[in-house]
């Protein structure tokens, strides 16, 4: 990858725009700013922010020209982009470098596809965004940065890179890039992936044609606190699981027979047997807590 990227960079240097070293340093600067400022929204795509490396989201923006992008970054853009991403003390040039970095990452994401954006190409070709970051300066040192998500097995911290087999394993991103993303867990929306037929996991070990009997029954659990009530959909669960996986061991199949609390779930019981270990984690409160309580005047609030 480095090699292919160097060619345009060298071309730039020959044209006299910028020597290779400077282009590279510029990119480092952009990445540093990205990691400090932009990452807050542009890694997860918060409030419609185009995600880093999401070629599709960036394409129309890149087409509008690099100056328009600089403008949005420096002055902000409705609905949610603040001027300079909120870091008003950062010099303009650095913000521009961060834009360049994100544009380059988007092009990396698009990699081959021919045309895309010919016009601003000269502005933002340079090198690979794989420089090590100073950890002490990271945006939130206890939060895993976007760049550390879904690493290939040899870099994931638990696989042994000295083991030949490790290098034969499939890197998760190779697959995840084609699947709908989510904000937690593997950062894949597995239910959507299944619903949209993007994956076809077998229901039977040997028979690819076997299909589950999906049961479409919602169970509403009223919760005591201020959170919305929980709607438990059998549908999405029976698409993956057998009744016996949950009943009767984890959940007694009878209304009112199960005591469930977030404390138990956090400790890996009840819903927490899967949610927080393999199914979407408990940080995604509102996927379950999805039914608005009846809004009523305060004096009648006890009704629930």
């Amino acid at each position: 990858m480095n090699r292919t990227l160097r060619i345009p960079a060298l071309a730039l240097a020959i044209l006299g725009c910028a020597p290779f070293g400077a282009a590279h340093a510029q990119n480092d600067k952009g990445k540093a700013i990205y990691d400090k400022v932009c990452v807050a929204c542009h890694s997860a795509g918060i409030a419609g922010a185009p995600k880093l490396g999401d070629a599709k989201a960036w394409e129309p923006r890149i087409k509008a020209g690099i100056d328009a992008l600089y403008e949005s970054a420096l002055k902000g853009k409705a609905p949610a982009m603040p001027a300079k991403g909120g870091a008003t003390d950062v010099p303009d040039a650095d913000i521009k470098a961060a834009v360049d970095y994100m544009v380059a990452a988007a092009k990396d994401g698009a990699s081959a596809p021919a045309a895309a954006a010919a016009a601003p190409a000269a502005q933002a070709a340079p090198a690979a965004p794989t420089t090590p970051r100073p950890a002490a300066l990271s945006f939130n040192r206890l939060l895993k940065p976007a760049s550390k998500r879904n690493p290939p097995p040899p870099e994931d911290g638990i696989h042994d890179p000295d083991n030949d087999g490790t290098h034969a394993l499939q890197p998760p991103l190779q697959v995840f890039e084609s699947l709908p993303r989510s904000n937690a867990g593997n950062r894949v929306d597995w239910v959507k992936a299944l619903d949209n037929n993007l994956i076809a996991p077998r229901w039977d070990r040997t028979d690819p044609a076997a299909a589950p009997v999906v049961m479409d029954l919602n169970i509403v659990r009223e919760v005591k606190g201020s959170m919305p009530d929980v709607v438990y959909p059998h549908k999405q669960h029976t698409a993956w699981l057998d009744c016996s996986n949950c009943h009767p061991q984890i959940f007694i199949p009878q209304k009112g027979a199960n005591q469930i609390s977030m404390a138990a779930i956090l400790l890996g019981q009840k819903c927490g047997v899967c949610h927080g270990k393999v199914a979407f984690p408990v940080s995604e409160c509102r996927i379950c807590h999805s039914k608005k309580k009846n809004v009523m005047p305060v004096k009648n609030a006890q009704a629930n």
Binding site: F176, N186, I199, P201, R202, P212, W240, D242, V278
Partner: peptide, 13 residues
């Protein structure tokens, strides 16, 4: 790797 296997098989298997 759960992720790898759940692409190919449902949990139930």
């Amino acid at each position: 790797p759960h992720w790898f296997h759940r692409i190919r098989f449902r949990c139930k298997v």
